[in-house]
Design a protein around this nucleic acid. Structure first.
Lengths: 208, 208
DNA sequence: GTGATTATTGGACATTTGCGCAATAGCGTC
DNA sequence: GACGCTATTGCGCAAATGTCCAATAATCAC
């Protein structure tokens, strides 16, 4: 098998195991079994377990970011971009993606390579939001004196709400995450209530 | 040693290890060493590692909640109560308490006993905030149509910002968490900017 | 075909983990 | 002072884990 493809296959298998068992419980042997290969092969391509985990997490989380960014760029104006952002963000972690983030944040303290990629990706998420806000302020449709801080707040609010949903199940429901996070952003940016809801209109990815 | 005291001592030692190393990296032997006793003793008092961890986490997190609640109750009016809340909340996890919460949220998916206590405590945190807001609305000093949702937003915003600080270190600083979370609450509740800052005035726990 | 290079195997190794258990020490009771 | 109960010890066990390595299989250049 082509070394490059093999490496990709290992990362894909690692990701599958991570989503099933969580980052902390992902072992080399499990990855090997998922791949249908021996454990030694994994170390032939990866220097350490940390690298393997960081790589797999970065691949998955990076794909989500890319997808959201691509959708946002299709927005015709800042308001539509923000709507698309919420559509895509709430979709990207519907299954087990958010549990992965929870694991990553907790494990970051003990896995340097994972912390690095996690921090980088979070900053890029914040910058994506920040760019939308700056555009909205420039266009005069959003009211915000500190876009960077507002972007961190919107991102943190989303993460904090999702966290409750994923960790505890029925304290906060997925529907409430959607509703409350959008409402929080409306308040934050001085938008009329409801501006960010009913967002599927005009969304190229919306289901029919 | 009195069995009840011994049990408390074990929980205290477990907590110390947990705060130093994180929940996932806490082992029976470490707890025994911290306690200055043998590993067998821990199992004489605790049925399993899960029980030990859930007990210790619940004790620590519960104490933080109690302390904050006690301080809030000393506030003379809703605004002061909210100020005291932010003072106490940002203090309670200054050291390593927040890493504990990160571990707990991540581990909740796989440790039922831990999830139960974590969910309960989070709901109580939310209710504490919700009570303050309801008082503020009644007194006419806060503007909020859905106190329960606003409370979840304020709590989630705090958690999300703290999360960035603890997991990534220099993306978001402790000072920014303090500033941004209070500003977020001001926006959320229709307060004048700055209402929630300079909160140490009149705070009985403020350092001189 | 032959040799060299490399992908791949499968298991050894040292370490760590939760847990159990037989032995011991301590202490109160009669 | 002897007995009994229990707190406490310290080690052992089985399982799991990351890492490494010698042996093997596959592939390709010549």
């Amino acid at each position: 098998m082509n070394p490059e493809d093999r490496r990709e296959a290992i990362i894909a298998a690692t990701l599958a195991v991570m989503q099933r068992q969580g980052i902390a419980a992902t072992t080399v042997r499990d990855v090997a079994a998922e791949l249908g290969a021996s454990s030694g092969l994994i170390h032939h391509y990866m220097a350490s377990m940390d690298e393997l985990i960081a790589e797999a997490f970065g691949r998955a989380a990076g794909a989500d970011l890319l997808a959201t960014r691509a959708l946002v760029e299709q927005g015709q104006n800042p308001l539509e971009q923000l709507r698309f952002f919420f559509d895509s963000y709430t979709r990207s972690d519907g299954d087990s993606g958010m549990q992965l983030w929870l694991d990553a944040w907790a494990e970051a303290a003990r896995r340097p390579e994972l912390r690095q990629i996690s921090q980088l990706l979070n900053q890029e998420w914040q910058q994506l939001i920040c760019g939308i806000i700056e555009g909205g302020v420039r266009a005069g449709v959003m009211n915000c004196t500190d876009p960077a801080a507002a972007a961190w707040r919107i991102l943190s609010l989303l993460d904090g709400l999702h966290l409750q949903e994923v960790a505890h199940g029925d304290s906060v429901t997925g529907h409430q995450v959607t509703k409350w996070s959008r409402h929080g952003a409306e308040i934050e940016l001085g938008l009329d209530p409801g501006t960010l809801t009913n967002s599927s209109q005009g969304n190229p990815l919306a289901r029919a």
